[in-house]
C-alpha cells in the first residue's frame, strides 16, 4: 500500500537469486509472528463476526437463528451507536493530542542532563505502572464532592469547581476521563518519543549551533522533523487504544451523562442486556472503526518511515 516494496533505484536486476533468497528469509522470519497473531487475534475476531450474524434467544440457551446483517443495520440505525462513536472520537482527539504535546515536552525534559534525572524518570513512569481500573477509582475519589482531594482543595482555595459534581455532568465528566487517561499514558508516549530523541546525533546539533541557530530554531527545524516518526508511532498506539477505551468510562461514569464509549456500548449490550448478536455487531463495528483509522495512520507513517530509512543509508 503505502510502502513501495522495491526501492526504485534498484532497477531491473531485481529478480536475482540473492533477492529471492532474501525474500524467502524475510518470509520465514515473519511467518511465526503472523501465525501467532492469526491464532490470538484472527480466531476470536472470526468468532465474533459469526456471533454478530446471528440472533440469540435470551430465554433458551443455545437457541439462535441466522439473521445476516440485521444486527449491523439495527446498530447503525441506533442513536446510541452514533452517540458513543462521537464521544469516543471526542475523547480520543482530546486525550491523544494532550498526550503527544505533554509527552514531547516530558521526553525533552527526560533527555536533559541534570541531577535527579534518574529520579524524575522513575517518578514519571509511576502512573503507567498502575492498573487502569485502580487509577480510575483513584480519580473518582479525588473528584468526589466534599471528600475528594481536588474538590476539597478547590473549595479551600475558594476557586470555582469545588462544589461541582464532576462526574455528574457531561463536560466535567469528560474532562475527568481525559485527565485520568492523560495522567496514565503520557509516560508511554514520552518513552517512545524519548527513544526517538536519543537517535538524533549530537553532530546535527553541533552544526546548528555553529550556524548560530537559536534554541527555538533548533527545536523547530531539527528536533521536531527528526522526531516525527517517533511521534507518529506514539500517535498510532495511543489513538488505537483511546478509540477502544473501556475501563475509564466504565469505572468513572458507567457511561452516564453521555460519556459512553463504543467498547462500553458493545459490552453493555453483550453482557448486561445479553444481546449477544447485537453486542458482537457493535464490537465488530468498533473494530472496523479502529482498523480504518489505523490503516490511515500507517499509510501516512509508512512513507515517513521509508524516507527516514533512505536518508540513513
Amino acid at each position: 500500500m503505502a510502502l513501495r516494496t522495491i526501492p526504485p533505484s534498484r532497477g531491473p536486476a531485481k529478480t536475482s537469486g540473492r533477492d529471492r533468497a532474501e525474500r524467502k528469509l524475510a518470509f520465514r522470519m515473519t511467518a511465526p509472528s503472523l501465525v501467532i497473531m492469526a491464532l490470538v487475534a484472527a480466531v476470536p475476531i472470526g468468532y465474533a463476526i459469526w456471533l454478530s450474524l446471528n440472533q440469540y434467544s435470551v430465554r433458551t440457551a443455545g437457541l439462535s437463528r441466522f439473521v445476516g446483517l440485521e444486527n449491523y443495520i439495527n446498530a447503525l440505525a441506533s442513536r446510541e451507536w452514533w452517540a458513543a462513536f462521537g464521544q469516543t472520537f471526542l475523547f480520543a482527539g482530546l486525550s491523544v493530542s494532550l498526550e503527544l504535546v505533554l509527552g514531547t515536552a516530558m521526553a525533552l525534559l527526560l533527555n536533559l542532563a541534570f541531577k535527579g534525572r534518574a529520579v524524575l524518570r522513575t517518578v514519571v513512569l509511576l502512573p503507567y505502572a498502575i492498573i487502569t481500573v485502580v487509577s480510575a477509582i483513584t480519580w473518582q475519589t479525588m473528584f468526589q464532592p466534599n471528600m475528594g482531594l481536588v474538590t476539597n482543595v478547590l473549595s479551600a482555595l475558594g476557586l470555582p469547581g469545588g462544589d461541582v459534581v464532576w462526574l455528574g455532568e457531561h463536560g466535567y465528566a469528560m474532562a475527568v476521563i481525559v485527565m485520568a487517561d492523560v495522567w496514565k499514558t503520557t509516560p508511554f508516549a514520552a518513552l517512545i518519543i524519548l527513544a526517538g530523541l536519543q537517535v538524533i546525533s549530537a553532530e546535527t546539533y553541533e552544526a546548528a549551533e555553529l550556524d548560530g541557530a537559536s534554541k527555538w530554531q533548533t527545536f523547530v527545524n531539527i528536533t521536531l522533523p527528526l522526531l516525527r516518526p517517533a511521534i507518529v508511532l506514539a500517535a498510532i498506539f495511543r489513538t488505537m487504544d483511546a478509540l477502544r477505551v473501556f475501563d475509564l468510562p466504565f469505572v468513572l461514569t458507567r457511561g452516564a451523562n453521555g460519556t459512553e464509549s463504543m467498547s462500553m456500548l458493545a459490552y453493555t449490550q453483550l453482557r448486561e442486556n445479553r444481546l449477544v448478536g447485537e453486542g458482537s455487531a457493535l464490537s465488530i463495528l468498533t473494530f472496523l472503526t479502529v482498523m480504518v483509522v489505523s490503516v490511515i495512520y500507517v499509510r501516512f507513517a509508512g512513507g515517513n518511515i521509508r524516507d527516514v530509512a533512505k536518508e540513513e543509508q
Partner: peptide
C-alpha cells in the same frame, strides 16, 4: 501487525 492486535474488539 500494527493494527490487528490493537483494534481487537474488547468485549469479545
Amino acid at each position: 501487525i500494527l493494527s490487528v492486535p490493537r483494534s481487537r474488539p474488547s468485549p469479545s
